[in-house]
């Protein structure tokens, strides 16, 4: 498996394929040494999901201080995430602009050296620049078909937040109270793909950007899922949209859950799916309570 650090060396080795200075809003990342015959004709290393390892490297460099200095993210049980093969990571989702997604993606890539694809609402795709950036950074529409292909055909890690937008849009008074886990679709996908579900409990995201109240009519006018007014906005003004509070991030990986069902079935028992989803939700909720019980300070953990 190629490690991320050697990409510069490969780039010079890849020879004459030089990229003409582009007028692209989102610049094309240079090729980072692909294998296979197709690479000869390519200029960038954007894969079929729109993810670019080169872009990830840049983002990792920028995000590293935020990850380790600002949030001081601390993992527990990282060894439970497999080094190869597909697995569906499931986590709680919170904070108006949730920092849990980048922290999980960055952390696993940094510690385990394997890519993580983030499954998010297709709404992201409709936002210019940001949508493209998100795709280059490893974001994929949370479509069952996409998840299946990533997990089963490609054997990748994918992270999904079953609460959806209900998680980050809830107000601070409901912090660490898990919302409904959709319709349990994530369990069904994991069953179909024959991969384990690995729950990750995240503490810290709620306090990094607490939602004070929501303004539904602005959300409607802008066509966005929710429009929160955060404590950050109140404290720092418009800058607060980009500036999370330095809450201490703690992440605990729970034991992988395997389902003893044959993969690639058209249908799975709905009651079984719902039961498993509810079990995972309860487990994650209990772990969150446990972590909160142990937490002495929001800022220092």
């Amino acid at each position: 498996m190629p490690t991320y650090k050697d990409h510069k060396a490969v780039e010079t080795a890849s020879g004459p394929a030089r990229l003409r200075s582009s007028t692209a809003i989102v610049p094309i990342p240079r090729q980072a040494g692909q294998t296979g015959g197709e690479s000869v004709d390519r200029l960038s290393d954007v894969d079929e999901w729109g993810r670019s390892e080169h872009m990830r490297t840049i983002i990792r460099t920028i995000y590293e201080p935020i990850y380790s200095k600002w949030f001081r993210a601390e993992w527990c049980g990282l060894e439970k995430i497999p080094r190869d093969g597909g697995a569906l990571l499931v986590a709680n989702h919170a904070g108006a602009i949730p920092s849990d997604a980048p922290v999980i993606m960055h952390g696993i890539e940094k510690e385990l050296g394997r890519p993580v694809y983030g499954l998010a609402d297709y709404f992201f795709k409709t936002i210019p620049v940001l949508g493209t950036m998100w795709a280059r950074a490893g974001g994929v529409s949370a479509n069952p078909d996409n998840a299946y292909r990533l997990l089963r055909d490609k054997g990748q890690l994918a992270v999904v937040f079953p609460e959806g937008t209900k998680g980050p849009s809830k107000s601070f008074t409901d912090r660490y109270q898990l919302r409904r886990f959709g319709r349990g679709g994530f369990v069904e996908i994991a069953m179909r793909a024959g991969v384990p579900v690995i729950p990750i409990a995240v503490v810290g995201s709620e306090e990094s950007m607490p939602v004070v109240f929501r303004v539904p009519f602005v959300a409607r006018a802008l066509g966005v899922p929710y429009f929160p007014v955060t404590a950050n906005l109140i404290a720092f003004g418009p800058l607060g949209a980009l500036l999370p509070f330095p809450a201490k991030f703690k992440l605990r990986v729970l034991d992988p859950i395997r389902f003893d069902v044959p993969p690639d079935q058209d249908r799975y028992s709905k009651s079984r799916v719902m039961d498993e989803a509810e079990k995972i939700r309860t487990q994650l909720q209990d772990t969150l309570y446990e972590m909160l019980r142990e937490r002495r300070s929001v800022w220092f953990g």
């Binding site: 990229l19 003409r20 582009s22 007028t23 692209a24 809003i25 989102v26 610049p27 094309i28 197709e38 004709d41 390519r42 200029l43 960038s44 954007v46 079929e48 729109g50």
Partner: peptide
Amino acid sequence: DGRLPWSEVASICGTRLLP
């Protein structure tokens, strides 16, 4: 086989993007 971002297609063709 494979997929290319539109910006890369333009780059290969030596044309610039008109946003």
